[in-house]
Design a protein around this nucleic acid. Structure first.
Lengths: 372, 372
DNA sequence: GTGAAAGCGCTAACAC
DNA sequence: GTGTTAGCGCTTTCAC
């Protein structure tokens, strides 16, 4: 049976290389694999290498995979919505992984846990060397499965409640601290939060971080207005903000768990005849593309998702190399980008507003990366 | 040698299913494959199916691939920048393909043609059943390669000068016609173009479409101001617009080949003290997320990249099924979304401006999908 | 240090 | 209809 229906001649096999070099296939195999090359005498090795090169030989990854159980393939599980946050993560991960000879299988994760397991089993059947999970909830059965099966896996963007697998995340609490500090500095005391889905660490930890940050300023966090958005969308942000504004007319600032939610807050403010930042200041999270161009330019907590993707790739490679290795947690430090959506509250008694900016270039508050 | 270092027991093999069902492996193979199931007597088939189910058996795709040369894998080649246009294309393609049992290998294409070929050969070595090319230039060596090797492949978003492979694209010329018609209707005559890279069909065909549309209105297209941006970025859009505005102070409207370029035009206008749309109207292309929120809301030509991805998946599946099949061209019709970046020219004599809008909901000019 | 041989798990001729 | 057999292309024991 022909592999291709047309007459293209197939790739040369290892056997052909062996014949060309006048050695046995097993010798070719040893010579071609850097790890076993030392088993072969130098002169033979170079003869084999040359023959392989002239024939344009490349090892058949499928056959090798069948034999070794490894594939140089990694699976990446992404939520089924194509958002601005996962694209750069994917991009960063692919860049790094392809440099190390891995190919990336991208799969959108179904919401049904049963189907999720099925998906992962399918990837395992393909002998993926490891998995990147960008979708976990705070206690995810997929993680249990990977652990049970001994599948190297790392988390990105979202982490679990207890660290069972290595992960790369942003310091969500620190991000909220940056946001709240900034608002308090401007003179705000009535600060509200639009939380993201609490089953994800981002939603949960940002909410917790928000409350902690309030406490640190002596503000009663338990009494702070907070509405939870069901998903990270502009629509849900708008709906949550509407509920919030109806119940708490006194708020002068809203910290949203995410830029999309913040833009929903814009919608709600516009709809209720409030002006941002004059009546209400708004802070987002992520600093996704174009939020500098919306009106008013969004003050937000910047996360480098691209960098997250790259570091995730690094962690995964380590997990593949050393399956029993320690669980690592890489926590990237976010940065506050001050634009025009935050200002002094209407009747503030604080010192002069320092948040408003004239130019496009944002003021950066801090930037560093920590490994824990 | 153990597949997994820990004690997880491996998946059951076909042999085990055969034993459980009391038949030979080849019978199991036949019974499990819907295409060959008819070769097996009904009762045996169901016995096999049941045994497979109780054991939790799933065929090993690697072993099957080695034997058949097929893999249920498709490769998708994407430009190495993570942009808003390719994410939804990818998303749509993955959705459709995974429904048909394909997994998607995503690869970012290097700019060096040599490396590109290497990349594709790597994918072929993995036995990908087909390729989606989102990166082609108007005459691309990768297409020649796929044709020579008989690799099923389809193009998306960008097409070649002559249709050698099936493709799914937006009707770029029609998009420009929508834009120009709209501007002329508002009273503009001095209309300029910021073109995208001309080696890509999008840049080339949009420019050509722009000129044709001018001709249709009796405007001398050859004399129309046009600057070419080297890449589809805000920065390049800004630079091109600066050149344009310096040389042609008379322009009252600019049609950009893409939203990012249009936002760069915004930058240039702001910088030179011009107001949009009062001094200069601007039209974009793509309708990417958030361009409704920038100030002023961008009038643009909407393309559904998600739908493009889905239709590409369909075409690829056809190409895989019938490698000798006809070259198909799916041309999606774009829609003009009128927002606030277009208005009557300053001293226009035309009828009342109808472009300005109060609400957020855009006016849709036309929508339909054509197959050619 | 190199060759021989087995076998990864499956499919598809070929027998009967 | 079902079983037998060969082999996809490689890696890795095991001999020597």
């Amino acid at each position: 049976m022909e592999r291709r229906s047309n007459g293209a001649r197939r790739q040369p096999t290892m056997k052909q290389v062996a014949e060309a070099a006048g050695v046995h296939v097993s010798t070719v195999s040893r010579a071609l694999n850097p790890a076993t090359r030392s088993m072969v005498v130098r002169s033979v090795a170079s003869r084999v290498l040359k023959a392989a090169k002239t024939l344009g030989y490349r090892v058949d990854p499928v056959a090798a995979s069948l034999r070794t159980g490894r594939s140089h393939l990694v699976g990446m599980l992404i939520p089924d919505i194509s958002t601005n946050v996962f694209a750069p993560i994917l991009s960063g991960a692919i860049e790094r992984l392809s440099n190390s000879g891995y190919s990336v299988l991208v799969a959108y994760v179904p919401s049904d846990p049963e189907q999720q397991l099925d998906l992962v089993q399918g990837l395992v059947a393909r002998r993926v060397d490891g998995l990147i999970l960008a979708t976990v909830t705070r206690q995810d059965p997929l993680v249990s499965f990977c652990l049970e099966q001994g599948i190297p896996a790392v988390l990105v963007n979202r982490s679990e409640q207890v660290a069972r697998l290595s992960a790369v995340v942003s310091d969500d609490a620190a991000g909220m601290r940056l946001a709240v500090d900034h608002l308090v500095e401007l003179g705000h005391r009535r600060i509200a939060h639009i939380a993201g889905p609490l089953e994800h660490s981002t939603g949960f930890l940002r909410k917790a971080g928000f409350m902690q940050a309030l406490w640190a300023h002596g503000i009663d966090a338990a009494a702070a207005p907070c509405e939870v958005a069901g998903t990270y969308t502009r629509e849900q942000g708008r709906a949550a903000a509407e509920r919030l504004l109806q119940r708490h007319r006194e708020v002068t600032a809203i910290v949203a768990a995410n830029d999309l939610l913040a833009l929903g807050v814009y919608d709600a403010l516009r709809e209720t005849g409030r002006e941002c930042p004059k009546d209400v200041s708004v802070v987002g999270h992520n600093d996704m593309p174009l939020v500098d161009l919306v009106q008013p330019g969004l003050t937000t907590v910047r996360i480098s998702h691209f960098e997250m993707g790259r570091q995730t790739a690094d962690l995964l490679e380590q997990a593949i190399q050393d399956p029993g290795g320690a669980v690592r947690n890489v926590v990237l430090q976010p940065v506050l980008i001050v634009r025009s959506s935050t200002a002094r509250p209407r009747h503030a008694t604080s010192r002069k507003n320092e948040a408003r900016m004239s130019g496009v270039v944002p003021r950066v508050r801090q930037q560093k990366t920590a490994r824990q």
